[in-house]
């Protein structure tokens, strides 16, 4: 049994630092392979950044059919915590666990730089340690990060408080609708974000503003034990 599972797809490339960031907050964590069909009893599942299946067809489109995604879906439906970072967010949208889609950046370039985002929702297993309205400077690194959804879905996300992270006005790096940088499902247990908190979780990286995502997961996991 582990507390946190990081799914490794062919083409994932942020899984090691994601695993280390989970271990750094005291969570027992391990990789699960995309061909596995069990999450080893993990409370938290993270779909890491990278280019699963070479981003062929569309980012996340093929990863969505990996055997492990059946277990991820069951875990999500049972209220388990599922966190998608960058390519993980794209996979969650492709699999329908989150609404909308991530399209080619508006200005066509791959964007790799720090951006400033505002924490809009703190009632999730990943953002519980932040205060609402906190601004974070986190790195983004993506070519397909422009969040797109119908006007109706965007209204619903706003009305239900499901925008988790928002780019500060003027800091939208990719043309995302309504400056959306991360969203949750209705219950809040499934969240996807484009920025990379695992690259900003330690003073050695000159930026630890992303550490709160991992301490939030640790607190959420301990609270689960308290209940059980």
């Amino acid at each position: 049994m582990i507390q946190a599972a990081v799914v490794r797809f062919p083409g994932s490339n942020c899984e090691t630092e994601t695993l280390r960031a989970l271990e750094a907050v005291g969570l027992s964590a391990d990789f699960v392979w995309h061909r596995d069909d069990t999450l080893q009893g993990a409370d938290v599942v993270v779909l890491p950044g990278g280019f699963s299946y070479g981003d062929y067809l569309r980012s996340g489109a093929i990863a969505r059919f990996s055997p492990i995604m059946g277990a991820v879906r069951e875990h999500a439906n049972a209220g388990g915590a599922v966190f998608g970072i960058c390519n993980g967010f794209q996979i969650l949208c492709e699999s329908g666990l989150l609404p909308g889609a991530l399209m080619r950046n508006a200005r066509l370039t791959f964007v790799s730089r720090p951006v400033t985002v505002c924490v809009e929702r703190t009632t999730t297993p990943f953002t519980g340690g932040y205060t609402e309205g906190a601004t974070l400077t986190l790195p983004v690194a993506h070519g397909e990060g422009r969040f797109v959804a119908s006007a109706e879905v965007v209204r619903e996300l706003r009305a239900e408080g499901r925008v988790v992270l928002q780019y500060l006005a003027g800091h939208n790096p990719n043309g995302s609708t309504a400056d959306i940088a991360g969203i949750s499902n209705a219950a809040g247990n499934v969240v996807g974000i484009m920025p990379h908190p695992e690259r900003a979780n330690n003073g050695m990286l000159n930026n630890d503003t992303g550490a709160g995502f991992f301490t939030s997961m640790a607190s959420w996991t301990s609270a689960l034990k308290g209940v059980a």
Partner: peptide, 8 residues
């Protein structure tokens, strides 16, 4: 189911 994204 796969070849096109129904959202976009």
């Amino acid at each position: 189911r796969l070849l096109a994204n129904p959202v976009t």
